[in-house]
Design a protein around this nucleic acid. Structure first.
Lengths: 191, 191
DNA sequence: TCAATACTGGATTGATCAATCCATAAATCT
DNA sequence: AGATTTATGGATTGATCAATCCAGTATTGA
């Protein structure tokens, strides 16, 4: 009954994610988006409604790609400690490879905390990270990987906070020596 | 020989700092600035040159107000541990009182890391925080406040990173319970 | 084959952007 | 006082902003 969409919506959200991730929300113009997505503004608005809604989809896409992977890796890990170290180092490595991006969740938290949708999404992501780490540490404790005197819930809050800081340091180009040393120190809190 | 400036430049920078701090760089319009500063755009450009330069002054003002105070408090502290806890809790408290602002250094790092001047300033601030904490921990170790098996340089990197994360969590409205617990866990790394 | 429908992207909209201009006003020097 | 110089702030500039419009096009069911 009607013409088919010529572009791939999923791919378009991926590309929008990349642009917003690098440039932030306010500094990204509609022209930036249409040229990155390879579509006209009419198509963009027909498909996504507004720049804000597209940002929301891009942020959700980022979360499902990254936070979800962190969760999966920690929950499927045989040994919690090396898995946690691997997760931390993977983030540090991501920032070393491409500091222009940093962590989109952190970028969203700092740039768009005043937007209720963004704030809610960021909050949910951080809670997910916290509870995943807490769960992993509880399992570690049961299995004797973590001594009984440790407090998994509290350590999870420390590590969740540390992760956000690690992304800030990465974006600020703190350098490999710094972030690796910081991760070492963070892992030592589990000893 | 010439007319005097009618507004107080220092006060104007303070006000610009507050606006940029809350809204970020890109989302702050010149109209936001002129109305907050109470001056016309002609005066603004005559005094500061451009929006970017005013932002640079505002960021420098923020640093000299905040990072410098952190340095002073840690260096004048009789006991390092309670001073460090006080510094961490003061930051957490600042975000609990006014989460719209967060930490301007973190905001600058995430929004404007691509600007060389901003990046350099942020980097210098973070190095100052790191070396101040490292120095304080070294003194603590000499005085027996910190056991000899600890590595002050590494702990300083952990704590510097933790601080940035704490500000992100604060801006994301993680709540008092969360940040206090995280600070407790962070302080425990010194035990 | 022909309506009906939805997608296309470039043109257009009115608002807003950072920055400059400029007539006026105040301050200092001779 | 008169000349010179700088500050003032509102008007103006041309660019750019997000969003809408629309003529043209592809797709489908009848």
């Amino acid at each position: 009954m009607a013409r088919k969409r010529e572009f791939d919506v999923d791919q378009a959200v991926d590309r929008a994610m990349d642009v917003f991730w690098r440039r932030g929300y306010a500094a990204t113009s509609l022209q930036d988006l249409t040229s990155a997505l390879g579509i006209g503004s009419g198509s963009l608005y027909a498909a996504f409604g507004s720049k804000e809604k597209l940002y929301g989809l891009a942020l959700a896409r980022y979360t499902s790609r990254n936070a979800a992977q962190l969760v999966a890796e920690l929950e499927s890990a045989k040994e919690v400690r090396p898995a946690l170290r691997a997760v931390l180092m993977a983030m540090a490595e991501a920032d070393l490879c491409d500091p222009d991006r940093g962590c989109m969740t952190v970028n969203a938290a700092t740039e768009r905390a005043d937007d209720p949708d963004t704030a809610a999404h960021v909050s949910a992501t951080l809670k997910l990270v916290e509870s995943t780490i807490a769960g992993a540490l509880e399992r570690a404790q049961v299995r004797g990987e973590l001594t009984a005197d440790k407090n998994p819930a509290e350590l999870a809050r420390l590590l969740t906070t540390f992760i956000q800081g690690l992304r800030v340091m990465g974006k600020a180009r703190a350098g490999r020596e710094f972030v690796e040393s910081a991760v070492d120190a963070a892992m030592r809190t589990l000893d």
